[in-house]
């Protein structure tokens, strides 16, 4: 352990633990997932940074969207995201989740991921190198430290809008809302 950080650990143990134990949900979408095996295996070894892939979303707190998102995948992404426990962080990986990338005029691929689930950070590139993943992770550390990685709070706060966008695209969703929506949400806020 870094001795310089002992003060930080004593001051905010929970936040430090959050930072250094990012459990990435092993969710494969698009072509970017091909960059993840080198990241988590011996050559780049993501465990140096405290990142380890986990089997189920209920154990994870880091969600990487690694490439283009088709409508069918979006449905799975929303379900996965809603199963993850708080605090959870989402990272859009590659240029396709940002603005569609090369699928900007595709009939079946969503263009802006942050209109359906909250995204804390982006790693641009097509594809990003494994080094870029680690740069993104260290940025995420900074965001967590400054309480700026607050996507899960934004999701709760604006759940009406997120759920509205999801239903506008996918039609009626076959699972109940995660948080209170509509008038009930406004009452809780007030």
């Amino acid at each position: 352990m870094d001795r310089n950080k002992i003060g930080k650990w004593l001051k905010q143990p929970a936040k430090m633990a959050n930072k250094y134990s990012l459990n990435a949900v092993y969710f494969c979408t698009g072509c970017g997932i091909i960059e993840i095996p080198p990241v988590i295996t011996a050559r780049w070894d993501a465990e140096r940074f405290g990142i380890i892939p986990v089997a189920t979303p209920r154990q994870g707190n880091l969600f990487m969207i690694t490439g283009y998102v088709s409508l069918k995948t979006l449905r799975a992404i929303i379900r996965t995201y809603e199963q993850m426990p708080d605090p959870k962080y989402t990272v859009g990986f590659g240029s396709c989740p940002i603005n569609g990338g090369m699928y900007w005029d595709s009939y079946n691929t969503i263009k802006h991921l942050d209109r359906y689930i909250p995204v804390d950070g982006w790693i641009a590139g097509c594809m990003p190198r494994p080094e870029a993943v680690f740069i993104g992770v260290t940025h995420l550390w900074t965001l967590i430290e400054k309480d700026m990685a607050n996507g899960y709070l934004r999701y709760r706060e604006h759940y009406d809008q997120y759920r509205g966008n999801q239903e506008k695209l996918l039609g009626k969703l076959d699972w109940p809302p995660l948080y209170a929506t509509g008038i009930a949400q406004k009452e809780i806020a007030a």
């Binding site: 595709s106 009939y107 604006h158 809008q161």
Partner: peptide
């Protein structure tokens, strides 16, 4: 059907995906 030649993907993207609004961060 989307693979036919007369399916206008750009118009479809404009009508469907561009009509999804961005999340407004309204502070009460």
């Amino acid at each position: 059907p989307p693979f036919r030649k007369d399916f206008d993907t750009r118009r479809y993207v404009k009508e469907v995906f561009d009509n999804i609004p961005a999340i407004q961060d309204i502070k009460a």
